[in-house]
C-alpha cells in the first residue's frame, strides 16, 4: 500500500512535468529553445480557471487553457521564426509577461492579488484518493503524452521533418521540407502541451494562485535536457524528478534532508549531464538558430 501511494503521488506530481517536457522536447528537436515552458504553463493554468469559472465546465476550462498556451506560443513562434528574434530573450520576456498579465487579469476578473475563487475540476469534488485519480482524464493524457510524442518524433514523416529542421535546416530545405512551417507547428504544439500541464495543476487544485507553476516549466526543461532531447528519456527524467519530490514530501516529518537540497536535484543532475561527466548530453545542432 505504501508503495502504491508513493507511485500515485509520483505520477500526480509528474503529470505537469510530462506535459511541459513533451512540448519542450518537440520544440527543441525542431530547433527552437523552450525557455517559455514556464510561461505557457502559467497561461494554461490561468486560462483553465477562467474557462471553468465562467462555464462551470472543466472541459471548457481545458480548451481555454490550451488557447492561452497557443496564443503565447504564437507570439514566441512569430518573433523567433518570422522575425528571427533571439529565442532566449523572447523566452524570458514571455515568462515575465505571463506572470504580469495573469496577475493583472486576476485583479480584473476576481478582484484578488493572490488567488481565484474555487472552480470546477475533473472528477468528483475534493476526491483525493484513487477515484479522483482514475477519473481525471488529464492524468491519462499525461501518462500517454510522452510515448505519443516519442512515436511522432521517431516514427512519422512529420517527426522526421522535425528532427531534420532541428539538425540541418539547410539540408532539410534543399529536399523540400518547409522548415518554417514545421517549426511553427512544433512551437504551437509545445504551447498547447505545456498549457495542458498548467490546466492540470489549476484544475487539480480547483483554483489559480499567483505564479502557481513555481518553476515547474524549468524542471520540465531540465528533464528534456537530462533526457538528452529524447521524449522517452525525458519522460523518465520527469518521473525521476517527481519521485525525488514525493520522497521529500513523505520524509518531511523526519527532517532528514533540508527540502531545499531535494529541490536542487533536477538542476544539479542537469548541469552534470550537460557537462558530459557521464555521457555528453548533446543539443540538436540548430537549436536556437533560426537565421539559416
Amino acid at each position: 500500500m505504501g508503495a502504491l501511494l508513493f507511485f500515485a503521488q509520483t505520477v500526480r506530481i509528474a503529470i505537469p512535468y510530462l506535459f511541459a517536457a513533451a512540448g519542450g522536447a518537440l520544440a527543441e528537436r525542431a530547433g527552437v529553445v523552450s525557455l517559455t515552458l514556464e510561461g505557457f504553463m502559467l497561461g494554461g493554468a490561468f486560462g483553465a480557471v477562467l474557462g471553468s469559472y465562467y462555464t462551470h465546465s472543466a472541459w471548457i476550462g481545458l480548451v481555454v487553457g490550451v488557447a492561452w498556451g497557443l496564443g503565447l506560443a504564437a507570439v514566441h513562434a512569430v518573433s523567433a521564426i518570422r522575425f528571427k528574434a533571439d529565442q532566449i530573450v523572447v523566452g524570458v520576456a514571455i515568462n515575465l509577461f505571463t506572470v504580469g498579465i495573469t496577475r493583472f487579469f486576476l485583479q480584473l476578473a476576481f478582484g484578488s492579488s493572490s488567488n481565484s475563487p474555487r472552480v470546477a475540476g475533473f472528477g468528483g469534488d475534493g476526491v483525493a484518493g484513487a477515484a479522483g485519480f482514475l477519473t481525471n482524464p488529464l492524468i491519462w493524457m499525461g501518462v500517454l503524452v510522452m510515448p505519443v510524442v516519442w512515436w511522432i518524433v521517431q516514427k512519422t514523416t512529420f517527426g522526421l521533418r522535425v528532427r531534420a529542421v532541428g539538425e540541418h535546416p539547410m539540408a532539410a530545405a534543399s529536399v523540400g521540407v518547409p522548415v518554417n512551417r514545421v517549426r511553427y507547428v512544433a512551437v504551437l504544439a509545445s504551447g498547447a502541451l505545456a498549457a495542458l500541464g498548467g490546466v492540470y495543476l489549476a484544475l487539480d487544485q480547483h483554483q489559480f494562485t499567483d505564479s502557481m507553476t513555481a518553476g515547474r516549466g524549468f524542471i520540465a526543461l531540465a528533464a528534456v535536457i537530462f533526457g538528452r532531447w529524447d521524449p522517452l528519456r525525458a519522460g523518465l527524467a520527469c518521473l525521476l524528478f517527481a519521485a525525488a519530490e514525493t520522497l521529500q514530501i513523505q520524509l518531511q516529518a523526519a527532517q532528514l534532508i533540508p527540502s531545499q537540497f531535494v529541490a536542487m536535484i533536477p538542476y544539479v543532475l542537469t548541469i552534470i549531464a550537460v557537462a558530459g561527466v557521464v555521457g555528453r548530453s548533446r543539443a540538436p545542432a540548430a537549436l536556437g538558430r533560426t537565421e539559416d
Partner: peptide, 8 residues
C-alpha cells in the same frame, strides 16, 4: 502588475 506585462 500591468507594468510587468508591459516590460515583457
Amino acid at each position: 502588475q500591468i507594468v510587468e506585462a508591459l516590460q515583457g
